[in-house]
Simulated assay, not measured.
Amino acid sequence: MFTHVMIGSNDLARSRRFYDATFAALGGGPGKTDERGRLIYAHDGGRLMITTPIDGKPATAANGGTIGIAAASPDQVRAWHAAGTAHGGTAIESPPTERPNGSVVAYLRDPDGNKLTARTRATR
């Protein structure tokens, strides 16, 4: 259904440090920069793109929005959370936890305030 998710950033270098670290924790590679200077992360069939807003106004986080990122294991969720908090992210809600459906979930805000979650698939 989706081709990609695009979010805004006010500091692409800061975003690169954060997302390179969190995607490395999930087994992904560093971001690439396209001809417009946008960061592009491709991982497990999905694409996350990060850009400065084209209208020249400050980037703001979506109120009520969350970007979900697939993790292969509970250890990856914990590594993602640790990498994110070590690279400018803010832990929100609770530390990585197992949900009633068996999935392991963690939440962070990136340095620009975008809400992210890494989670494993449900096991029950």
Rank of each mutant, 00 (worst) to 15 (best):
M1T: 06
T3Q: 15
H4Q: 13
H4M: 13
H4I: 13
V5W: 15
V5S: 14
V5N: 15
V5G: 14
M6L: 13
G8R: 04
N10L: 00
D11K: 02
L12Y: 05
L12G: 08
A13C: 08
R16G: 09
R17W: 10
F18S: 00
F18M: 00
Y19L: 09
T22Q: 15
T22H: 15
F23H: 04
A24P: 09
A25T: 01
A25I: 04
L26G: 00
G27A: 01
G27C: 03
G28V: 12
G29F: 01
G29V: 08
G29Q: 05
G29T: 10
P30H: 01
P30F: 07
G31F: 14
T33V: 12
D34F: 08
E35P: 02
R36V: 00
R36D: 13
R36W: 08
R36L: 07
G37W: 00
G37Q: 09
R38W: 11
R38T: 05
L39H: 02
I40S: 12
I40D: 09
I40Q: 11
A42N: 11
A42H: 09
H43Y: 13
H43R: 08
H43C: 12
D44R: 14
R47V: 15
L48H: 07
L48E: 10
M49E: 13
M49I: 12
T51P: 10
T51S: 15
T52R: 10
T52W: 12
K57F: 08
K57W: 09
P58H: 07
P58C: 00
A61N: 00
G65P: 03
G65T: 09
G65K: 01
T66R: 04
I67N: 11
I67Q: 10
G68Y: 01
G68E: 02
G68F: 05
I69K: 05
I69A: 03
I69L: 10
A70V: 07
A71Y: 01
S73D: 06
S73C: 07
S73L: 10
S73K: 02
P74Q: 07
P74W: 08
P74Y: 06
V77P: 05
V77A: 03
R78C: 13
R78A: 11
A79W: 06
W80E: 12
A83L: 03
A83M: 08
G88M: 05
G89K: 02
T90K: 01
T90V: 14
A91N: 07
E93H: 07
E93Y: 11
S94W: 08
P95I: 11
P95T: 12
P96N: 12
P96V: 01
P96G: 02
T97P: 05
P100D: 10
P100C: 02
N101T: 06
N101R: 07
G102Y: 11
V104E: 03
V105R: 04
A106N: 08
Y107C: 02
Y107H: 11
Y107L: 03
Y107V: 02
L108K: 02
R109E: 09
D110Q: 06
D110N: 05
P111I: 00
D112A: 11
K115H: 06
L116C: 05
L116I: 07
L116A: 05
T117V: 03
T117W: 02
T117C: 10
A118H: 02
A118Y: 04
A118E: 01
R119A: 15
T120Q: 02
T120V: 05
T120H: 01
R121I: 15
R121D: 15
A122C: 04
A122Q: 00
A122I: 06
R124T: 12
R124M: 09
